[in-house]
Simulated assay, not measured.
Amino acid sequence: MINLEYLHAFVTAAEKGSFSAAGRHIGKSQSTVSVSVSNLETDLGVQLFDRAGKYPVMTPEGEHLYQQAKVLMRQADRIEHYTTSVRDKVENSIAIGLDPLVPFAFVETALEKLAQKYPFTQVQIFKEKSESLFAALNDNRVDFVLNLTSQGIPEYFEFACFKEVEWVCVCSPDCDLADLKVVENEMLTTERQIICSSMYEHGVLGPITTLSQSIWLAHDQDDMIRMVEQGIGWAFLPKIMLEERVALGSLVQFQPAFVKTSQSYGLDLLWKSNTSSGPVAEYFRELLFRN
């Protein structure tokens, strides 16, 4: 049976280039690391380091075993993390419902940190309209719903606003609207507007932002952006989704007369009332309100 402590000393010495550096890294003395590696060599019956010079140099056999040892150490770490998760009652999976009007950028950092802290919990992302997500939350098919503030949140859900999203008007650089300091409402009603079905049907956002008499319906906000870049029409979109394209010059932000100040709408996090949450769900909720 391979001793994992010996194996750890070997891998660390191989990566740090000396027994003393390995000892400093893992908090052991140089002699402890040297003895661990020697014991591993004895157990395996293979010389892993040539010690003739000032610093130990891996033998060809050591080079070969080093690659396998790294894999074995990763597997050992996975087993340790998994058993810790079981003891701490960490969820095997969580499901998050994402309204199509919620820019994914607002959850990217939270998901990245979640993956680092709970690497063995599977995360499922569902993108559907609010009504479908509310039904999924009520049926316990999702743990959370991220939703653009609306008027119809069921009373049996808990919710809190975790972010304000600024929305702006954009067009292509070749559009007639691009050169105007302020675009009057009358002009916006005659120019073609690009909108997605989720916006068009939204109880709060739809009536406020649907201005033109000529509308093209896109599948989602990403398609809206592409259509605006092609010069097909103008659109009202979350600023966070447009900043890179505006900086590159493929989109132009313009000031409409109907917006006197910045136009912002809240993003709500919803969860089911009287439902206990595990550590992963609690951490995800904490991350959203922290950022």
Score class of each variant (00 low, 15 high):
Ser250Lys: 06
Trp234Tyr: 14
Glu41Arg: 02
Met224Thr: 06
Ser36Cys: 10
Trp167Ile: 05
Ala115Met: 09
His8Ala: 07
Lys54Leu: 11
Ser273Ile: 07
Ala115Arg: 14
Ser85Asp: 12
Gln230Trp: 10
Ala110Val: 08
Ser36Trp: 00
Thr189Phe: 05
Gly97Leu: 05
Lys272Phe: 07
Pro279Tyr: 11
Leu48Phe: 05
Val165Pro: 00
Ser29Met: 07
Met58Thr: 07
Lys260Gln: 14
Ala13Gln: 02
Ser31Ala: 14
Ser214Gln: 12
Ser262Lys: 12
His64Gly: 03
Phe157Asp: 03
Glu131Ala: 14
Thr189Asn: 08
Asn147Cys: 13
Glu184Asp: 12
Leu242Asn: 00
Arg290Cys: 15
Thr190Asp: 10
Leu251Thr: 03
Glu131Gln: 15
Tyr118Gln: 04
Val71Cys: 06
Leu217His: 11
Ile215Pro: 02
Gly62Ala: 10
Ser212Pro: 06
Val246Asp: 01
Asp268Trp: 02
Glu91Met: 09
Glu131His: 11
Gln122Val: 09
Glu186Gly: 14
Glu158Pro: 00
Glu229Ile: 12
Lys181Val: 09
Asp99Thr: 06
Ser198Val: 03
Ser212Ala: 11
Gly152Pro: 00
Gly17Met: 11
Asn291Cys: 15
Ser264Ala: 12
Gly278Gln: 08
Ile225Thr: 03
Asn147Lys: 04
Leu98Met: 15
Ser172Ala: 15
Glu155Asn: 11
Pro119His: 15
Ser20Ala: 15
Asp50Pro: 05
Asn39Gly: 04
His202Val: 05
Thr121Glu: 03
Leu98Gln: 03
Glu5Phe: 05
Ser31Pro: 01
Cys169Ser: 13
His64Pro: 00
Ser277Cys: 11
Thr84Lys: 11
Glu80Leu: 09
His202Asn: 07
Met187Asp: 09
Ala235Met: 06
Phe49Glu: 01
Ala14Asn: 02
Thr32Asp: 01
Ile96Val: 11
Arg192Leu: 07
Gly53Ala: 14
Gly231Arg: 10
Leu251Ala: 06
Gln30Arg: 14
Gly97Glu: 01
Met73Gly: 03
Tyr82Lys: 09
Cys169Glu: 01
Trp234Met: 04
Ile194Lys: 00
Ile26Leu: 08
Phe254Leu: 12
Val246Arg: 06
Leu217Lys: 10
Pro103Ser: 07
Ala21Trp: 02
Val168Asn: 00
Tyr82Met: 11
Lys70Glu: 10
Glu155His: 08
Val280Ser: 01
Trp167Ser: 01
Asp222Glu: 15
Thr121Ser: 13
Asn3Leu: 08
Gln151Ala: 15
Trp167Tyr: 13
Ala257Gln: 12
Asp179Thr: 13
His8Met: 06
Gln151Leu: 11
Val145Leu: 07
Leu4Asn: 05
Gln68Cys: 04
Val252Ser: 01
Arg51Phe: 08
Leu251Trp: 02
Asp139Ile: 13
His202Tyr: 08
Asn274Glu: 13
Phe10Glu: 00
Ala9Asn: 00
Trp271Lys: 14
Gly206Met: 06
Pro100His: 05
Ala281Phe: 04
Ser276Met: 14
Phe104His: 07
Thr210Met: 07
Asp223Met: 14
Arg78Thr: 10
Val182Gln: 14
Ala115Val: 04
Ile215Gln: 12
Thr275Ser: 10
Val102Tyr: 00
Ser18Asp: 09
Asp139Phe: 12
Arg78Ala: 13
Ser93Gln: 12
Ser132Pro: 02
Asn138Ser: 14
Thr42Gln: 09
Ile2Cys: 03
Arg245Gly: 02
Glu80Gln: 12
Tyr200Met: 07
Glu186Tyr: 11
